[in-house]
């Protein structure tokens, strides 16, 4: 199986925030934390485009590279997960991430950071699958149930695709061809997955050399 990827089609996203709501309700995310958010450029004027953003589960993940206690790990499916028991709440992953995915619930006075929380690609965490501990710390483990991220699965316009990267690319390629080869850029792919390989959607965001 190829690695898991997210893709948000800016041509289709209608800023309904359904993905945000689905994520919040599926995982009962703590107050003050949004694992997914929708950002709208040119809001309310002609040329408006919206993009849904969460952790992109990068190939060369900056959060993983800077964590002082090495609490991150990458699964066989390319999903970047972290161990909240190890997290010290230093905020370095938040500094390093280009997408603003890692977030910290306030754990005390003066903005003291608690355990980092971020999108898990609905793959839970290190605890036993489907256990109460896993649910409390990381939310539901849909991947272990043979399901895919709730945000992508319930996206009404199918702007947000999530799952096996090859299938995501296939679906997107078909779509771009059907609409006349237009709007093939995919938000964040350059930053998250590196230079495009054969068959992958064009990255609208050039990777930094």
């Amino acid at each position: 199986m190829a690695r898991m990827k997210f893709l948000c089609d800016a041509e289709r996203c209608i800023e309904c925030n359904g993905c945000v709501t689905a994520c919040k309700q599926e995982h009962e995310v703590p107050w003050g934390v949004n694992r997914r958010r929708v950002v709208t450029i040119n809001d309310g004027v002609p040329g408006e485009k919206s993009i849904s953003v969460a952790c992109m589960h990068c190939s060369d993940a900056p959060c993983m590279a800077v964590c002082p206690v090495d609490c991150f790990y990458k699964t066989d499916e390319g999903v970047v997960l972290h161990d909240k028991d190890l997290c010290i709440g230093c905020g370095y992953c938040f500094y390093a991430c280009p997408f603003g995915a890692p977030q910290f619930p306030q754990a005390g006075a003066f903005g003291l950071r608690g355990k980092m929380d971020k999108c898990t690609f609905c793959a839970g965490g290190p605890e036993k699958d489907h256990s109460a501990e896993e649910w409390q710390k990381y939310g539901r483990n849909r991947l272990a149930e043979g399901k895919l991220p709730a945000c992508a699965e319930m996206c009404s316009t199918k702007a947000l695709l999530g799952g096996d990267g090859d299938i995501v690319a296939d679906i997107y390629r078909t779509r771009v061809l059907k609409r006349g080869g237009k709007g093939s850029e995919a938000y964040g792919w350059g930053s998250a997955y590196g230079p495009p390989t054969g068959g992958a959607p064009a990255a609208a965001t050039a990777p930094k050399s």
Binding site: D70, K74, T75, E145
Partner: peptide
């Protein structure tokens, strides 16, 4: 364990 962190693989526990 993945890279020193304990976790099972998603297909190991079966559907809930």
């Amino acid at each position: 364990k993945y890279q020193g962190k304990p976790d099972s693989r998603p297909y190991e526990s079966g559907p809930s």
